[in-house]
């Protein structure tokens, strides 16, 4: 098992290195360089800027300097906002995004698991059909459509909830629903099919035969095993929340990292795009790693070879 963990750690670092290298190559293959504006700058100015940001160094040196910065958690300066570092964007935005993401994650689990369990236990009845219809809707409707419809009905028509900002708890309701919609549907479906599968197993029949109550059968015997696929999907779910936040933060004007990222993309602020991409990617890969390790803990049957 330790060998497996070690192997995973090595793989994680390799993946990170490849991501950094790829991002670096992408950002340095931009035609015209980072200082190409609509109004052309004089060549002298460009030269001075290149010198200031060490862009006249050979690429390998630039890359290793950048790596050195990364190890010291320094993502370099922004090219568009003079005097701002990319770190500032992350320090500003990430706590906001992370809080929203965490609340959404809790909401997803609180909503999806009971729905999935209900659908599985009432298999073939109207409750099942209801949950499955809801889940199909959630998977097929893009989050920005859900978000805008929610705003239109709950904020403009009924005037119940604020349209933007996170000033009070009310502000969280719509973004959380819109952000979580897809994952709730997906996890509810997964929970349903995996619980249905488990309930067919022999050990459930044995438990029934012993005269165990149905409630205990579901909670003690079935759920433990049925939850395993759900836990596997949590890593990608966190990824989905992050990228989903680009759209949701834009719609609800939430000052999170997603907004900074989309803005940097629109402004072609290359160092900011590069820094935030690497930050996102690192965060996600670490999350997937953590989920994998957690998975190892809860399922004793798995002994990774």
């Amino acid at each position: 098992m330790y060998r497996y963990i070690l192997k995973r750690i090595v793989m994680t670092f390799l993946t990170l290195f490849i991501i950094i290298l790829l991002t670096f190559i992408f950002m340095h293959s931009v035609p015209g360089g980072p200082f190409t504006r609509e109004k052309e700058l004089p060549p002298k100015v460009v030269e001075a800027l290149n010198k200031k940001y060490h862009l006249d160094d050979p690429y390998p040196k630039q890359f290793f300097d950048y790596l050195k910065g990364l190890v010291q958690l320094d993502l370099g300066p922004s090219f568009k906002y003079i005097g701002k570092d990319v770190n500032d964007f992350i320090i500003d935005g990430f706590p906001v995004s992370a809080k929203l993401g965490l609340i959404t994650l809790v909401f997803i689990l609180l909503a999806a698991l009971p729905l999935g369990i209900l659908a599985a236990l009432k298999n073939g009845k109207w409750q099942d059909a209801f949950v499955m219809t809801l889940a199909t809707l959630g998977v097929t409707i893009p989050s920005f459509v859900i978000a805008t419809m929610l705003i239109y009905f709950f904020s403009y028509r009924l005037e119940l909830l604020p349209t933007f900002g996170l000033d009070s708890w009310k502000g969280y309701i719509l973004p959380v629903i819109a952000l979580g919609g897809y994952s709730i549907s997906f996890i509810a479906r997964l929970m349903r099919s995996s619980l249905l599968e488990v309930m067919k197993q022999d050990y459930i029949r044995t438990a029934r035969m012993k005269g165990q109550t149905e409630f205990k059968i579901v909670t003690y015997h079935a759920l433990r095993n049925a939850l395993i696929p759900v836990i596997t999907i949590l890593g990608p779910t966190v990824a989905g929340l992050l990228t989903g936040s680009f759209v949701i933060e834009k719609i609800f004007a939430i000052p999170g990292m997603g907004v900074h990222f989309v803005e940097s993309v629109a402004q072609r602020d290359y160092t900011a795009i590069m820094g935030m991409t690497i930050f996102y990617a690192t965060f996600l890969i670490v999350m997937i790693f953590v989920v994998d390790m957690f998975y190892l803990l809860i399922d004793p049957r798995i002994k990774y070879e």
């Binding site: 390799l14 993946t15 991501i19 790829l22 992050l242 990228t243 990617a281 996600l284 997937i288």
Partner: peptide, 9 residues
């Protein structure tokens, strides 16, 4: 490796 990279980014 490619599949662990967040592709949307």
């Amino acid at each position: 490796i490619i599949s662990t990279v967040p592709l949307t980014l």
